[in-house]
Structure formats: C-alpha cells, structure tokens
C-alpha cells in the first residue's frame, strides 16, 4: 500500500472530526470529535515516519497522544464543573465567550 491511502484515511478522519465539532451540541461529544481530529493527524504523522524511515514522526505522535490526554483531563474537568453549577450541558447555551 502506498502512503497515499493512509493519508486519505487520515484526511477523512480529520474531516469527520471537524464536522462533528461543528455539528454536535453535547460538549463531551465535541471533545471526542476533537480527539478524533488529533488521531487523524497522528495517522498522517506515523505514515510519513514509515515512509521516511525516521522515528521522528512516531515521537511526535506520542507527544500528541500525551497532549490529547492532558487536554481531555482539563476539558472533562470543565464539563464536570459546569455540570456542578447546574448549567445546561449544551454548547449553544454556554455563550459567555462573546463580544
């Protein structure tokens, strides 16, 4: 399989993640879709690492997984905090970040 296939799959995953972020209203699901986008990026990185015979891509991918884990922590912490305040768990209702 040449690398193009892997990159195609990576693009599809990434796009599906983007659509999910734009479409879903549950913040948990939005975070999940965000994870998916990161995964798409990971796949591309590893594909290129294999192509070039270099370990750099894989290291990058590990770091990305680490960062994703941290981000999930914080995101879920925020969701819990929001839930604790009895605010609706709906991205469309949480509009404090406005001008």
């Amino acid at each position: 399989m040449n690398i193009g296939w892997y990159l195609a799959v990576s693009a599809i995953i990434f796009t599906l993640g983007a659509v999910g972020v734009m479409t879903r209203r549950n913040p948990l699901v939005v975070l999940l879709c965000l994870e998916m986008m990161l995964n798409g990026g990971n796949l591309a990185l590893i594909a290129f690492s294999r192509m070039l015979g270099n370990g750099d891509g894989q290291i990058f991918a590990i770091i990305v997984i680490t960062v994703a884990a941290c981000e999930v922590c914080i995101g879920l912490g925020m969701v819990v905090a929001i839930f604790r305040r009895s605010l609706p768990i709906d991205v469309d209702e949480l509009t404090e970040l406005q001008g």
């Binding site: 770091i63 680490t66 960062v67 941290c70 922590c73 914080i74 912490g77 905090a81 604790r84």
Partner: peptide, 20 residues
Amino acid sequence: AFEIASFLLLIAAVGAVVLA
C-alpha cells in the same frame, strides 16, 4: 520534548483537580 510533556501532564492533573 519528553520532559516538557511530562511537565504538561503534571499541570493537567493539577488543573483537573482544581477545576472539578
């Protein structure tokens, strides 16, 4: 990158505890 990533994990853990 390794060290920074571990540091980041620490911060994330503390942050999650603080948030929740």
